[in-house]
Design a protein around this nucleic acid. Structure first.
Lengths: 149, 149
DNA sequence: GCCATATGCATAAGCCAGTTATATAGTTGA
DNA sequence: TCAACTATATAACTGGCTTATGCATATGGC
């Protein structure tokens, strides 16, 4: 409960991370595009063209929900539907260059927001955060986590 | 771009924090209550009873939106409306004991989720994160930030 | 003290992003 | 070749917001 007095416990770290998440969530400026859409664009950028069903599963939406979302992306020119060679039922959703541009713009603005904030911190804090970078990546990386159940 | 080779830059830290935010957002389990409702309950817990208008401003909603949200909270027994002594127009929204219990339950489950993940990390990573706790708190703390504009 | 104006909240109507249920087109294997 | 399965689409509905508006109370200049 008191990271100032003793060494921070796991719970203290958890609370600090939650606080950061809350701050970053609240610091989102309206960007004219939904969080789901941005997340889907990012997924397409990272993974490449995907089927509707596949996208839906990865993004945690239902298939009809993803169909609607993709409709919006296509209508605004951020993504396109391609035929899946070898399966006439399926569709491959792919990022357009406009979609990539939009995604990049968003990523840059977010990074700038956070960086500006970081640069206002005292040097010791910045150093501590810099040293925590590998740990933060390990935290979100599933590959080393021992799955249970 | 390569935190593994050189000392992590501010941009690297920003990306790591974004990655954590994304992971924590995706790790939210359905909880039967909206994010806005939880955030509002937390606000009431931290700040104490507030007016509808005040709540709306702090939570980034419109006043009618907050009226509706408070209606839901009241109907589910998580909050209550009190008369504002000294202003017959106003209402003070306050957390009920049920509301506090629900909020606590959520907070505990979140903390447990994150803690469990932390405990699977290697000791050096855990140590690095523990040392970063004060810096994380400073990052989200507005009080020392030099405002511009 | 009165009245014009401002303020706090509620209601109404509509929008948007999601849901479940169902239909249609294409695929696959016995 | 046809029954069963799969991928997507469409329809109808819901939740959580929005804007526009109304009503009650408060406030200050006169």
């Amino acid at each position: 409960m008191s990271p100032a007095e003793n060494a921070p416990s796991t719970t203290d770290v958890a609370h600090a991370l939650e606080a950061v998440v809350t701050w970053l969530r609240d610091s989102r400026e309206p960007v004219g595009i939904s969080k789901s859409s941005l997340s889907t664009l990012a997924r397409l950028d990272v993974v490449g063209p995907l089927r509707i069903t596949d996208l839906a599963e990865r993004e945690g939406l239902t298939q009809p929900g993803m169909t609607t979302l993709v409709n919006r992306l296509v209508q605004t020119g951020l993504a396109e539907r391609r035929a899946d060679p070898g399966d006439g039922r399926a569709v491959l959703v792919a990022l357009t260059s406009d979609g990539l541009a939009r995604l990049t713009e968003y990523r840059v603005s977010r990074t700038e927001l956070i960086s500006a904030r970081l640069e206002q911190l005292d040097p010791e804090s910045r150093s501590a955060l810099a040293k925590a970078v590998p740990a933060l990546h390990r935290f979100v990386d599933d590959s080393h986590v021992t799955e249970e159940k």
